[in-house]
Design a protein around this nucleic acid. Structure first.
Length: 877
RNA sequence: GGGCGCGUAGCUCAGCGGGAGAGCGCUUGACUCACAUUCAAGAGGUCGCAGGUUCGAUCCCUGCCGCGCCCA
């Protein structure tokens, strides 16, 4: 066993072992309780980034833990077809050949995309394997595979037939670069500096009204001017006409409560074709919509001769120039306002009226609200409940059509003769209304999120009623980032309720984002992303996983620091070496007895008792989704208590002459280590599996070992208190040695004085252990007759400690040191006493707390007396 | 404008009603027979500010300041 753990080969070996051995397989088994997670499907085009690494590590921890607990676990992996992203990727490839998708035509283009998917689509799933994800690859799904496609069609048609899907002219967000509509939540509003232009619109009867706008180019499409009905400044103008500059159109001046009297001049130009609010005003007042910006973001015919064909930004400049020339530009102000950008490509979106498909959300949202309000779905952390509810309660209809080729094509056929539309599961070659054969399928595809919304049941076989669906639905928990609560979580909830009649998952475990060391979002454009695969190469997957888990608190973001990664690697190396130590000290030929068959010593009972506490708390933390706390607790136990104390204390017996004592130490070391491996396995599966097989050759792999249970009878408060006392003494002596610069190699004599018999006996019985830990020889006395002249002094656990030194000690310094300690002690003592002197504390605080304070007082008082005695010795010198 | 989160040791962050914690960094010492990816010892904090509730507040409530995110 090498002294430094080398993850590379170990990880590859065990992953192959697990996968080929079908240990990830999720089976329907009614004799066991189900535990199921569906993986948020990463984009097929994608490569693993830190967000995926975190998300999947958390899921894997939960799955591995539940698997060890004996649940029938299923973790369904898969990928998302990612409409825009994938299509863009393939189009870029075509562009290199000088082709566009239109050159190929729809069918050929789709063939290309499928080819591309076959070639590159498994990159990310290979990377998930590197991470150690124990998902059931035999059940891997793709949002455009046959089953998912069937589910999508079925859902669409049922919603359509119920009238919950409609097609209509509506204002939507158009991305001129992606050449498709995008939904409201795909628009990112960014604070952007701009200008607020004040423009005079002449009134038909003379004079003018000044409006303020950030988008003067859209004025060419104005069809009204609106003011607030409450606004006294404009009350008389309502119903009058204004003349649209540059165009000459007459605009009615209308009253609408939407208008903010405080903003600008309180008068608003209304462009129903290019602003969502104006669109609504237009609907309320039956205003015409004039489209002046086209789908290519250039001005249309309607914009007039002078502007037609100009790009929208150029048009803005021209319009402003022309207004200024005509003296109609009153002023411009600098302003910061929110501008909508396409979340995919960053282009400024253009609100545009077009014919699109929508899902009527109200009837679907109501049950989705109820499910969460009634607690049938629980968010962790709880605060995300509010964020979710707030969104679902204010939900607007969902625009689901996309002007793309790659995706689920809308299963509706339009008849060129009678003009009617028909939804059909299996295609259509004749119009069922008029019999015409001039039917054509709607060219649009569905929003990618439409298919992901069905993921929890489409992956389990729906619309078939499969045994998997019956057994594993509702799934147990959804683990995902807080950035896609709206995109995905909410939609799965209403789709699940609608089509399965039950929630898709019982709990939603939300985590934050992985940020760079400076707290910025990792992004391609910033180039500040850290590649998980590189990290796995350099530090191992276990280190990455451990770092991500220990660094995260539910719902909070986490910064990626390489120092923390080193820390995780060091911990794994520590575990490796502790195991190496244990293995080196086992006798291979000899079978060890069981824990019950050996006579345990105090320190054995102590570490085993401490372990019970760890088992209990780690399990409780996992139940509460406090994965970070669980991992941190294991880190501390392993490193501090097991390595730094127990192993050191066990060495004496291992290297000693008593074979029975040696065997006992071996049994305890092996047993505690084994339990630790089990507890650590969900977090760092590779290294633990590797060690396990060295520790327990021939036994079942760790991945299917059962999760440790707390053994109440192994809890031993007395042992914990006793060892706690020994530790206190050891620490005090070490402190003295360091303070007095006694070289570490030098064996020193240490005099311990106490009149308490049980402490004396304890020290007597563990003399060897203490001696080895302090590298000295103990002299135990009930009372000290002669004052040690040249000695350093300390007090711990009510025991006086003398460390005789060879040369003369600096009495002044020693006295000062003890005085300082005494002062600190007295301060604490008086704080405790103040509490105990307070009658209302005694009356109102729980008895337990009072007892604790009393015990503390007693202890402090003992130490104070001893310290004073030591000081009086020094005064006498 | 509304909502949410964060402000704790030099840095990064846990803890969140009864003794201020960790890792890194720093100081001192040690290649001690599992590990220098180590060991031992130590320094370092008015737990953002101001009120309130409580026997007791870093933790609960209110207000304020600063930073970040989401929604409009």
């Amino acid at each position: 066993m090498p002294p430094v753990y080398e993850p590379k080969e170990v990880e590859a070996k065990w992953y192959r072992f697990w996968e080929e051995g079908k240990f990830f397989r999720g089976e329907v088994d009614p004799s066991r309780r189900p535990f199921c997670i569906v993986m948020p499907p990463p984009n097929v085009t994608g490569e693993l980034h830190m967000g995926h690494a975190l998300d999947n590590t958390l899921q894997d921890v939960l799955i591995r833990w539940r698997r060890m607990q004996g649940y029938a676990t299923l973790w369904v992996p898969g990928t998302d077809h990612a409409g825009i992203a994938t299509q863009a990727r393939v189009e870029a490839e075509l562009a290199k050949e000088g082709l566009t998708r239109h050159d190929l035509g729809r069918e050929k283009f789709l063939e290309r995309v499928w080819q591309w998917k076959e070639k590159y689509g498994n990159t990310i799933t290979m990377q998930l394997r590197r991470l150690g994800a124990s998902c059931d690859w035999d059940r891997e799904r793709f949002t455009m595979d046959e089953g998912c496609s069937r589910a999508v069609k079925e859902v669409f048609i049922r919603l359509y037939e119920e009238g919950l899907i409609y097609r209509g002219d509506y204002i939507v967000n158009w991305c001129p670069r992606c050449q498709t509509v995008i939904s409201d939540i795909e628009v990112e509003h960014k604070e952007t500096p701009g200008k607020l232009y004040y423009i005079r619109y002449p009134l038909a009867e003379g004079g003018f009204i000044t409006i303020a706008t950030t988008r003067p180019e859209t004025m060419l499409g104005d069809t009204a001017v609106a003011v607030n009905p409450e606004d006294p400044r404009y009350r008389e103008l309502i119903g009058k006409k204004a003349i649209l500059p540059l165009v000459g159109r007459e605009l009615p001046i209308i009253a609408d409560e939407y208008v903010d009297m405080e903003f600008g001049t309180g008068a608003l130009k209304v462009t129903p074709a290019h602003d969502p609010h104006d669109f609504e005003i237009g609907q309320r007042h039956h205003l015409p919509a004039v489209q002046v910006i086209g789908f290519d973001a250039r001005m249309t015919e309607e914009a007039g001769e002078r502007y037609r064909g100009l790009d929208r930004w150029e048009a803005r400049r021209r319009v402003v120039e022309d207004l200024r020339a005509q003296g109609l530009l009153e002023k411009e102000e600098d302003i910061v306002h929110a501008v909508g950008h396409c979340y995919r490509c960053g282009e400024v979106v253009e609100p545009m009226i077009s014919k699109q498909w929508f899902v009527r959300m109200k009837p679907l949202a109501e049950p989705a609200v109820a499910a969460v309000e009634e607690g049938r779905i629980r968010f962790i952390p709880e605060r995300f409940t509010k964020i979710y509810l707030n969104w679902v309660k204010n939900i607007k209809d969902w625009c689901i059509s996309r002007q793309l080729w790659w995706g689920h094509r809308i299963p509706v056929w339009h008849c060129a003769d009678c003009g009617r539309s028909t939804a059909a599961r299996n295609g259509l070659d004749r119009c069922p209304h008029c019999g015409s054969s001039r039917v054509e399928q709607d060219p649009d595809v569905l929003d990618t999120w439409f298919s992901s919304a069905l993921w929890p049941f489409s992956t389990l076989g729906w619309p078939e009623v499969t045994p998997e669906l019956k057994f594993f639905y509702p799934t147990s928990v959804l683990v995902t980032g807080r950035d896609i609560i709206f995109f995905w979580v909410a939609r799965m909830i209403f789709m699940g309720l609608k089509f399965m009649g039950d929630v898709p998952f019982r709990e939603v475990f939300i985590h934050g984002l992985v940020l760079d060391a400076l707290g910025r979002k990792m992004s391609k454009s910033l180039g500040n992303g850290v590649d998980p695969l590189e990290v796995i190469e350099s530090h191992g997957a276990d280190s990455l996983r451990f770092m991500l888990v220990t660094g995260s608190t539910p719902g909070n973001d986490l910064r990626f620091h390489f120092e923390r990664l080193d820390g995780a690697r060091n911990f794994i190396n520590k575990l490796w070496n502790a195991s190496r130590f244990v293995l080196m000290n086992l006798d291979e030929e000899e079978a060890l007895p069981q824990l019950d068959e050996v006579r345990l010593e105090l320190v054995d009972r102590w570490i085993i008792s401490r372990l019970q506490d760890v088992v209990e708390r780690v399990t409780a933390y996992l139940e509460e989704y406090e994965l970070g706390e669980a991992a941190r607790l294991l880190y501390e136990f392993m490193w501090d208590e097991f390595c730094d104390w127990y192993i050191e204390m066990a060495k004496l017996r291992l290297y000693g002459a008593d074979p029975e004592a040696r065997r006992t130490a071996q049994v305890v070391l092996k047993s505690v280590l084994g339990t630790c491996l089990k507890l650590l396995h969900p977090f760092i599966p590779f290294v633990t599996e590797e060690i396990w097989h060295r520790l327990e050759p021939g036994s079942a792999p760790l991945i299917v070992q059962s999760w440790p249970a707390v053994e109440e009878k192994r809890k031993d408060a007395a042992a914990e208190a006793a060892v706690g006392m020994l530790q206190e003494v050891v620490r005090a002596v070490r402190h003295l040695r360091a303070e007095m610069r006694v070289p570490p190699g030098k064996r020193a004599t240490v005099i311990l004085v106490t009149r308490e018999v049980d402490k004396m006996r304890l020290l007597e019985e563990h003399r060897k252990i203490v001696e080895s830990l302090v590298a000295g020889e103990l002299v135990l006395k009930e009372i000290l007759l002669e004052k040690p002249v040249n000695a350093a002094h300390a007090v711990a656990a009510g025991i006086e400690i003398y460390l005789p030194l060879e040369g003369l000690i600096d009495v002044e310094k020693e006295r000062a040191r003890l005085h300082k300690e005494l002062k600190e002690l007295e301060e604490e003592l008086s704080r405790v006493r103040r509490k105990l002197d307070n009658p209302s504390f005694l009356a109102k605080a729980p008895a337990e707390v009072v007892a604790k304070e009393r015990a503390k007082e007693e202890e402090l008082e003992k130490n104070r007396l001893s310290l004073e005695k030591l000081l009086s010795f020094l005064e006498g010198v």
